[in-house]
Nucleic acid binder design. Structure first.
Lengths: 204, 204
DNA sequence: TAGATTGTTAATCGATTAACAATC
DNA sequence: TAGATTGTTAATCGATTAACAATC
């Protein structure tokens, strides 16, 4: 069975709403209400849930909240905790490093920078230590928050250390081997797109 | 003529590559090479460019770099500069505020916070001043970088001030009127998805 | 002219939505 | 039983890709 990217990307949304419902003491949820909450189609919700869930929903009643939360968490692999490193301890890098709202076992463990002054010996280290640490800790996810000009170099280093997924905040298209995934987070582009969406009447 | 979201979101990518080519003194580009650079399909590139471009490409030669850059910039509305405000001057908010890599007339002009200590009188102000300033400056794009618990309240305030597009970094689904656009940037969810993409063999 | 590259028209592919019988 | 809600099968919709004649 094959899960589409579109479905995968909706999973964290479901998880968020389901957990919030659970906190309210609710035990069942219908696809209709879940869809409404997220602005989706209820059939789509049922299809999505069917993809990751072992147990069925109950007609007339809905889905068991605990079961479906469990199923999504398992699907997303929330048992093996996800350690992540950052290269580039500028403002953005430090903001992410100190961002305390990460949920679900996602954990940014440390940052690296080439500027000795930024290193503090606790969670910011010199980039020369990267290879050793990343390999030893068996980390596979890296975040790039260095300036554009240094991004490809950092990327190459990460790949060399065995990083398999890169979250890239530098506005540049990184060249990586086929087995490495890059998610680009071009903040500038995001703002542009957002602004076009409100101004442009020709968007569908 | 109607432009799809998918096409719109590729425009900043084209723009970036085209500008970089221009810097190298290149004057023409083929859809094939542009596609290859971005990992896209060349037919798709031609279709996309045709959507925003008045002038045609020249068979056997390609597209005129200057013309196509102009066309994309015009399409994205890069004449009217885009002023943006942030609410939440924590680490993430300040990182965005001070992020100096925004291009193309996108400009985060100031941030607001309810904590008086964070206000500096130059570009961070108390949230009580928001309504007045936003209305006076006629700003239509806002960024939310406050904790989850305060996000909806801030969102309501923004809507009330005439903000039409919200870039939301709080992990919560905001309720907004139909005429307001929300782009969610759930950092936690992004990392989860990224991690699943490398671990999960069942993704297509 | 020959080779490269374009734009157009048609085909494919996959995601979303609709219709509906089955179940609690 | 009646109402709500499910899962399945088929239809729709739109984006991507292929085929190809036209053009530089």
């Amino acid at each position: 069975m094959c899960i589409s990217i579109a479905t995968l990307e909706r999973m964290p949304q479901y998880l968020r709403v389901l957990k919030s419902l659970k906190q309210q003491g609710i035990t069942n949820v219908s696809s209709t209400s879940l869809a409404k909450e997220l602005g989706l189609n209820s059939i789509q919700v049922r299809k999505d849930l069917a993809m990751v869930s072992s147990s069925d929903g109950r007609p007339g009643v809905g889905f068991d909240l605990d079961e479906i939360i469990d199923d999504i968490e398992n699907f997303l692999g929330l048992n093996n905790s996800k350690d992540v490193i950052i290269v580039g301890a500028g403002k953005l890098g430090q903001a992410l490093l100190n961002y305390n709202q990460f949920e679900n076992d996602v954990n940014i463990v440390m940052a690296f920078d080439k500027d000795e002054e930024k290193c503090n010996g606790t969670n910011i280290f010199h980039v020369s230590k990267l290879k050793n640490l990343v390999k030893r800790l068996n980390i596979h996810i890296g975040i790039i928050t260095v300036p554009k000009s240094a991004a490809q170099e950092v990327c190459d280093l990460m790949v060399d250390c065995g990083i398999k997924a890169i979250w890239n905040f530098a506005p540049i298209n990184l060249k990586v081997p086929d087995n490495v995934i890059v998610k680009n987070e071009d903040l500038s582009a995001s703002l542009l797109i957002l602004s076009k969406k409100i101004s442009g009447g020709e968007i569908k």
